[in-house]
Nucleic acid binder design. Structure first.
Lengths: 136, 136
DNA sequence: TGTTAAATGTTATGACATTACATATCGTTG
DNA sequence: CAACGATATGTAATGTCATAACATTTAACA
């Protein structure tokens, strides 16, 4: 668990950019934020992101084509993780639910499917934003 | 449940293209397959896809940016649906699992999140393809 | 039939991601 | 240390996915 090679310069920079952000970032936004560090091309970002995902330090949110730093500092396994994404404020909640995990595992075994990556994303409005919109 | 306006010409053509396909199609692939019917621009496809998704007749697979016809002919609600996507043969299994649904609903209520759309996709190898690769 | 909403056609552009190839860095081993 | 291979980087070009903006047509219906 939780072990990965030391990060290279590019990987560290990309991870720091995601850590500093208060929400998910697109690869091109990361690129823009790292221009001053010498970043020039999308590939520099995508390559770093690939490795960081491999290490479990970053997650890709498929439904919005964006990336977030893993919320659980020292738990970089590859378990099943779910995300709640607020369409209004952009805030993302990362959570891991045993019950969801078991239910999906059950289907997977029953169908002899060999899972490689599982995506669970709930888009909607977070508690705070939902409250605001229903007052309108 | 299961009621929607009559489909327009473009909507019917796009749905038929997806029905004929034996797996998910990208919007541009659909466009290519409908050239002979007079399709010229991506927007014609995307507009039809938007409506078809609204009607529950088509699903978008976020993790592969592709579209499939709904597998359950007469059940076009907007329940929580999960997909198992084979990376090898492209086959997609659509399923609805009560337990998964309840587990996620529990998290959602506990966190007062207002869900709009839920994405559940398992990428990997289907039983048939898994068998082949492990023999190698 | 005139009016309005929905759907369509078309061009251009924006947003996301990868291929291909050259160069550099670093650890290993002879 | 030098030669090698593996990994990381730099850069340009291109490929793929999706939408904005605007003109026109069709359909619903008072």
């Amino acid at each position: 668990m939780s072990t990965h090679p030391a990060l290279t310069r590019n990987q560290s920079l990309v991870l720091k950019a995601l850590d500093r952000a208060d929400g998910p970032l697109s690869a091109y936004t990361i690129l823009d934020r790292l221009r001053d560090e010498g970043f020039r091309a999308p590939l520099q970002v995508y390559r770093a992101l690939d490795k960081l995902q491999e290490f479990g330090l970053v997650h890709r949110l498929e439904s919005i084509s964006a990336f977030v730093a893993c919320a659980r500092p020292d738990c970089h396994g590859h378990e099943m993780i779910a995300f709640a994404i607020c369409q209004t404020c952009g805030r993302v909640d990362e959570f891991s639910d045993e019950a969801v995990q078991e239910s999906l595992s059950a289907w997977v075994s029953a169908n002899r499917f060999m899972p490689a990556k599982t995506t669970i994303e709930i888009s909607g409005n977070c508690a705070a934003c939902a409250e605001l919109t229903e007052k309108a």
